[in-house]
Design a protein around this nucleic acid. Structure first.
Lengths: 163, 163
DNA sequence: TATTGTTATACTCTATAACTATA
DNA sequence: TATAGTTATAGAGTATAACAATA
């Protein structure tokens, strides 16, 4: 484990919701990653694309701060997205040290596809529950997330800047 | 991420339960790891201890199979637990190539403490919900876990043997 | 020859620090 | 000198393959 983002409260026959959350979170992430693979992107790319869509034109390191990635990590991630044609670096004429990051049309297409995929993924994951049960679940999880300081903008898989 | 067990379905203002599960799973695991730290153990040790308690005396590689760890990983993990005095390797007289693994009294103590900690952890995580809401949540998550083939014995953080 | 456990090796990831070009 | 971005380097983690002892 990296920062050890993995845990296993001891294992009773009927696990509590804390252990279930970890198990389901990891399994869900894994499945989503598999669904993503045919599109030629990985989970980390998706988080970046989504963030970029909301912050077009801002400098690389500024966006890195928002996501919780250091400059080095940003370089590699943006390199990957640029080589795939999803992101464009444009020099800032006012300060030629910095770049503004922009989604290309292909990047926007990809983001749209990914969002569709996310819906399919969630439907598959929740197939055992009725629609109203899914709403219930969502509501309960949102309450926990809110009280744990997890926003809709928090990116899983990208550790928030520590210390 | 490792096997990239992390995902981020694109990020709407009101995230669905699939994204919430990943976010909460990772955050919960992280918090549990922090609670564990003062005891001198890490999440992976805990999963191992729990598995061992249910399989005392079986050979190292047999238990590794159960958990989904290869022989190399088992050596390191058991080394760590042995150096902490929680696990004992005993030669099998019938087949002197293999060891049986046993929890020491200290190991059982530690497992007990960890289980208490897990309860505290879950109480903290669920503090925003009433008791009946927590039961509801647990029930909904169990249904999903069952249909996704996740057993109470599945260890998060230790990828199940693939292929 | 096959199997248990161990050690050695290579590969990936991550984090830190050094470098460049602008300011 | 300070900052944006990049590159280089070192450490941790993981996976594969070679190895010694026993069967």
């Amino acid at each position: 484990m990296t920062d050890d983002a993995t845990a296993s409260p001891a294992m009773p026959a009927h696990p509590g919701f804390a252990l279930l959350l970890v198990q389901l979170g990891m399994e869900g992430a894994r499945q989503f990653g598999e669904r993503l693979a045919p599109l030629g992107v990985e989970p980390r790319h998706v988080g970046m694309l989504a963030r970029l869509a909301a912050n077009e034109g801002r400098a690389q390191q500024v966006i890195g701060e928002l996501i919780g990635l250091n400059p080095t990590q940003m370089v590699f991630l943006v390199d990957e997205l640029e080589s795939r044609g999803f992101v464009e670096r444009r020099r800032n004429p006012a300060d030629r040290r910095s770049y503004g990051l922009y989604l290309t049309p292909a990047g926007k297409d990809m983001l749209g596809k990914v969002q569709e995929l996310a819906q399919v993924h969630q439907a598959e994951l929740g197939k055992s529950l009725s629609e109203s049960e899914q709403d219930q679940l969502t509501e309960l999880l949102r309450r926990i997330a809110r009280d744990q300081g997890i926003s809709g903008q928090s990116l899983p898989g990208i550790p928030p800047r520590r210390r």
